[in-house]
Amino acid sequence: MVTLMLMNSGEFQIYLKSAVESYAKEKVLSNNWNEEESISKAREEYEKLLPKGETTENNFLYSILNEGQTIGAVWLEQKNNENGFIRDIRILEKYQGLGYGKEAMNQIEMMGKKLGLRKIGLHVFGHNKVARGLYEKLGYQTTNVMMIKEI
């Protein structure tokens, strides 16, 4: 069974390094940033959004555990009293495709309810069809679509 546990500072530092690299890669794949600037821009965004790291107010960074083993991470931001936003969710590659993402999403929703949230939003890159499919199956609705074409 999947559970969520708040990250300590050591776990946060490991997460942060991986998250910055992954976010930079996604922004390059989405044609938002060029590769040369991607890491520094990603680092800047994370520093702006999490100025106090894992203790930044209204941000909850969890390790995703299965039977005590860390299998991923999730970052839930409480935007206001009723709305939350999943800033990041990641399941380690060797655990993907085993249903842990769905279980983690259910745990996130339970955490959101405990915080008093009524809605949780998220962003998914358009090229991430697997994640989009999961979120749609869980009842998340598309609210915006941005498109781009190179000319």
Rank of each mutant, 00 (worst) to 15 (best):
G112H: 07
N59R: 12
I89E: 04
E136Y: 00
Y140I: 05
S63M: 11
N83W: 01
S38Y: 00
L61Q: 06
W75Q: 04
T56M: 11
A42D: 03
I64N: 04
S38V: 01
H127S: 08
T142W: 00
I39Y: 12
L122K: 03
Y46K: 01
K113H: 06
K52Y: 10
T55C: 05
G116N: 06
I71D: 02
R87K: 11
N80T: 03
H127G: 01
N81C: 00
G139R: 07
G101A: 09
D88N: 14
G84W: 05
S63Y: 03
G121N: 13
E82L: 13
G139S: 07
E57Y: 03
K94C: 05
N106D: 12
G84P: 02
F85W: 15
E57C: 01
E44M: 09
M110K: 15
E109C: 03
G133N: 15
L98P: 02
N128R: 10
F85C: 05
L49V: 00
R90C: 06
K48D: 04
V74Q: 06
N106F: 10
E109I: 15
E93I: 06
G133K: 13
E47V: 01
S40K: 14
G84C: 07
V130A: 12
L76F: 10
I91C: 04
Y95M: 09
E109V: 14
N66R: 11
L92I: 11
I120T: 06
K102N: 10
G97L: 05
Q78W: 04
I108G: 03
S40L: 09
N34T: 07
H123Q: 13
G126Q: 06
E136F: 00
G68I: 04
G112A: 08
G112M: 08
L92T: 02
R132Y: 07
L134I: 04
K41H: 09
I108F: 06
I108T: 12
G121A: 12
G99K: 08
E54W: 05
E45C: 01
N58K: 12
A131H: 04
N83M: 08
K52E: 15
G121Y: 14
F60L: 08
R118E: 10
K52W: 01
N106E: 14
G139N: 07
G112T: 05
I86W: 02
T55E: 15
V74R: 02
R43E: 15
T142F: 00
I89P: 01
E103D: 14
Q96I: 04
A42P: 00
L61W: 06
A131C: 04
E67A: 13
Q141S: 11
A42G: 05
S63A: 15
L122G: 01
I64A: 10
M105I: 13
K102A: 10
I120C: 08
T143K: 11
V130H: 09
I108Q: 04
S63E: 11
T55G: 01
M110Q: 14
E35A: 14
K119D: 11
R87T: 02
E103I: 00
R132T: 04
R90Y: 15
T56Y: 12
A104F: 08
G53H: 08
E93N: 13
L49S: 12
N83H: 11
Y100N: 12
